[in-house]
């Protein structure tokens, strides 16, 4: 639990960060809240000779809401997500999800950007952002580009972000309708055994739109278009939910770990998703 030696940098602007990344290449990593990276360094599972702290970079810590667009700076903490009243109004699923991440101490430090860039299948924000169809802004040596959350995750710890890019901002359209973030975990501070993010809009008693994503049931978050479609145009009764769950179960690929064997995880995934859909629908 003692990390190897590293050099510590705290640049004052993004240009400084990019310059350091260019200079040290693979040997450098940015750090936001450090609550995923530092444990890995202490376990000597991540060797980071050059550690670049993002905390002093301006312009990455705001939450801006206007014209139905929500922009969240990458350095916004999970605590700030929970505390932000405007956000609770326009995208309440964010608060509901953030409340189920880690514990208060971790949430004071852990950032949205770190949670999304990390690429750990256990992180809750990636599935959530896929459900909300978020766009990620990445800034690198060649300037800025935008990648959809649904396109971002390639494998465990592998994302569309290149090593010399920084995730600066997350943009989402304010969701409408009912929502639910449902998570089963072994204890406070644990990653999900299974978690589901669901947004549903309703019109005339029938489902108009549904977006469904699940977490920690594959090496990447699983957003299932077919699961969502299975609800559309139905009254979200038992059969429709069963169909949605069946589609989702087709797409997840959990592995056995200390949380339990595959059969258990698949069963729990179905139960959690069913409850999430029911709760979201009751709020739609």
């Amino acid at each position: 639990m003692i990390p190897a030696a590293f050099d510590y940098y705290r640049p004052k602007d993004l240009a400084g960060v990019l310059a350091l990344l260019r200079e040290h290449g693979d040997d450098a990593r940015v750090m936001a809240g450090g609550h995923s990276l530092i444990p890995m360094m202490k376990l000597r599972m991540a060797e980071v000779p050059h550690l670049i702290d993002l905390q002093d970079v301006p312009g990455m810590s705001e939450i801006l809401i206007s014209d139905g667009k929500i922009r969240i700076g990458a350095l916004v903490t999970q605590y700030e997500i929970i505390a932000h009243e405007g956000l609770a109004q326009s995208a309440p699923i964010l608060r509901e999800a953030a409340m189920q991440i880690a514990d208060p101490q971790v949430r004071y430090m852990g950032t949205v950007g770190g949670n999304l860039a990390n690429g750990d299948p256990g992180n809750d924000m990636p599935g959530l952002m896929q459900c909300l169809d978020a766009q990620f802004t990445l800034v690198g040596p060649d300037g800025e580009r935008s990648v959809a959350a649904r396109e971002f995750y390639e494998a465990a710890y592998l994302t569309a972000r290149t090593d010399d890019e920084v995730l600066t901002e997350i943009t989402i359209s304010a969701p409408t309708g009912g929502y639910a973030y449902e998570k089963q975990k072994r204890k406070i501070g644990d990653y999900a055994t299974a978690a589901a993010a669901v947004q549903i809009t309703q019109s005339g008693g029938r489902c108009a739109l549904a977006s469904i994503a699940m977490t920690n049931l594959s090496d990447v978050p699983v957003w299932s278009q077919s699961a969502g479609s299975a609800l559309v145009d139905t009254e979200v009764g038992g059969d429709a939910i069963k169909a949605a769950v069946a589609y989702m179960l087709d797409e997840i690929d959990p592995t056995e770990d200390n949380r339990g064997p595959v059969a258990f995880k698949r069963h729990v995934a179905g139960a959690i998703l069913t409850r999430a859909i029911q709760r979201a629908w009751s709020r739609a």
């Binding site: 089963q184 072994r186 055994t193 949380r259 339990g260 064997p261 059969a263 258990f264 069963h267 729990v268």
Partner: peptide, 15 residues
């Protein structure tokens, strides 16, 4: 733990 309780229910045919 959760999975062992679940397994108990499973073995008793409760799912």
């Amino acid at each position: 733990d959760h999975w062992r309780i679940w397994q108990t229910a499973q073995d008793l045919g409760l799912h």
